[in-house]
């Protein structure tokens, strides 16, 4: 789990009670709220997600870890009915546009018939699948505002 001055990570919650499918993308703050972990280049200000080790804009490696915005707009989506083992189908998948030119792919936590293009969405957490042993796997999700 990444630590920085701008992101407070609840290590106990992140390591013990929750099992994120990609723990480098998301952390829980002190109150247990999800936060997307991005990067901001200290040289050119380009924002990356996932947090880049090297800036794709200027090649600087001086990247600050930042917390991305919690709200955005749904660019597009699909209800996925056929997926590899481990995913609970059907699931709604969408691209959410956050401020600072960041587009995030996420499971959407909403009934299929309530999802529309351009709707405002808010960051959330949900069970998205199961590991080979059947234990639930969590990830960040987005929920209609």
């Amino acid at each position: 789990m990444t630590k920085s001055s701008t992101l407070v990570v609840n290590e106990a919650a992140a390591n013990a009670d929750t099992r994120f499918v990609a723990p480098d993308l998301v952390a829980l703050d002190a109150k247990g709220a999800p936060r997307l972990i991005g990067g901001r280049c200290r040289k050119c200000n380009a924002v990356s997600f996932p947090r880049a080790a090297v800036c794709a804009n200027c090649l600087s490696e001086d990247i600050e870890t930042i917390e991305l915005a919690h709200e955005g707009t749904l660019y597009s989506y699909s209800i996925v009915h056929q997926a590899p083992k481990g995913w609970t189908v059907p699931y709604a998948l969408g691209y959410v546009d956050l401020p600072d030119n960041v587009r995030v792919l996420a499971h959407l936590d909403a009934p299929a018939d309530k999802i529309t293009v351009n709707m405002p969405m808010r960051l959330s957490v949900g069970v998205v699948g199961a590991d080979p042993a059947g234990a639930p796997l969590l990830s960040y999700t987005f929920t209609p505002v």
């Binding site: 990609a22 989506y77 691209y95 792919l105």
Partner: peptide, 23 residues
Amino acid sequence: DWEVTQGMVMPALYAMRARRYMH
């Protein structure tokens, strides 16, 4: 690929293009 860790599959990628085009 980080999108694959979030459930991306090829049909969904094209389906999202289709959904936006339809919109």
